[in-house]
Simulated assay, not measured.
Amino acid sequence: MKKSLSLVLTAILTIGLAGCGAKKDASAVNANATTNNDKKVIKVGATPVPHKEILEVVKPLLEKKGYQLEIKEFTDYVQPNISVNDGELDANFFQHVPYLENMNKEKGLKLDYTVKVHLEPMGVYSKKITSLNDLKDGATIAVPNDPTNEARALRVLEKAGLIKVKDGDLVTPLDITENTKNLKFKELEAAQLPRTLEDVEAAVINTNYALEAKLNPSKDALAIESKDSPFANILAVRKEDKDKPYIKALSEALTSPEVKKFIEEKYNGSIVPAF
């Protein structure tokens, strides 16, 4: 009888210990899940101006919250999205919503955005003329070759009265319906546009690349995009990461009063806060 009782108590004790072990294991799993859901080092891809400059302002703001920001510099508009999608980066900061949506469609990416940070009005620049009225018949204008920015550039030229274009979001030179000066268009990667100013009569350049080339949009642009443009630059992330603590912390820092003040004072109207 005693022997049977002893065996029963041993079995109960064993089950109890196993249960405690299971609880500890479950706690460990939960702890790891929490750790994996947050991270203390945030890797962000950005083009140099103004995106990297703005992220430098964000660094100390994140440090106060216990995060370290690592910035990887890019000079193209394709690789930053690929790197985020593949998990090499946590986020990127260089593009507007239409460009991101088009990249998702073309490359099969699963990216989204959290906040709109600033607008970079696209401008028309030239080293050969001082007014668009001076453009000669058959002159060549360089434009970005990616779909969204090319359409955006053509709309700037349309608003300046140089051409008329069909309705639509992703228009190209083939959609021009009126071109009284018989303008020709040279389609190039956005980063190359400032270097073409010696070879073409004019170029429509994204503000970040204009600033890198020491061009001041508010002073040097012969025509400039309206400030009510929908092309605000965003923080892009993987869809599954949007609500993670480190992404929320980064988004809050990018739309902080400190960043707004920096944009307004540093760029003096050539770049406009979008928050």
Rank of each mutant, 00 (worst) to 15 (best):
T255Q: 04
A31M: 09
V44E: 00
P80M: 02
L55E: 07
L55C: 00
K261G: 05
S27F: 12
K40P: 04
K72I: 07
L119W: 00
N268R: 13
T207K: 11
R155I: 13
L7N: 06
F262T: 12
S131Q: 12
F262E: 02
P48K: 09
L154G: 10
I176D: 02
H96N: 09
K43Q: 06
E212R: 07
L215W: 10
P245E: 11
K40S: 14
K105T: 14
L5N: 10
S6R: 13
V97F: 01
V115M: 07
I54W: 08
L55T: 00
K3W: 05
P230H: 09
I205A: 10
K127N: 14
K239H: 13
A210C: 11
P48F: 08
E189T: 13
A153C: 06
K64N: 04
L109H: 09
G21C: 07
E101L: 12
D220K: 03
G87Y: 00
G45F: 06
G21D: 10
E187I: 15
E63C: 00
P121A: 14
A26D: 05
S270W: 02
K166I: 10
K186L: 14
E198G: 00
T75Q: 06
K227H: 11
E189Q: 12
V58Y: 02
K128R: 11
N85S: 09
Q192N: 11
K43W: 03
S218F: 06
N208K: 15
K227S: 10
A26W: 03
L162R: 03
G269Q: 13
F185S: 06
E240L: 03
F231L: 11
V41E: 11
V171D: 05
D167L: 08
A91K: 02
A191L: 06
V200E: 08
V49I: 15
S218E: 15
Y67M: 00
G66H: 04
N208W: 08
A203L: 03
K242T: 10
I54Q: 01
L235D: 12
K266L: 01
V8M: 08
L69D: 06
I271N: 09
S131V: 07
K184Y: 08
E158A: 13
G269M: 05
K219E: 15
K3Y: 03
G87E: 00
V259Q: 06
D241C: 12
G138R: 12
L5F: 04
K3V: 11
P48M: 07
I129K: 05
K110R: 09
K166M: 04
V117Y: 07
V165I: 14
V97H: 04
K164I: 10
P147I: 01
L13M: 13
M103D: 09
K116R: 04
D199R: 01
T207Y: 01
E264W: 00
N182M: 15
T14S: 14
A28Y: 08
A33V: 09
I82G: 01
V57D: 02
G108F: 15
L13R: 05
I12S: 11
E265P: 01
D86F: 03
D90K: 03
R152G: 04
V165P: 00
V204A: 12
V8S: 00
T172L: 09
V124I: 09
K184C: 06
E106V: 15
F74Y: 13
L162E: 13
E63L: 03
Q79G: 02
P230V: 14
G269P: 05
A232T: 12
N149R: 10
I205T: 10
L61C: 01
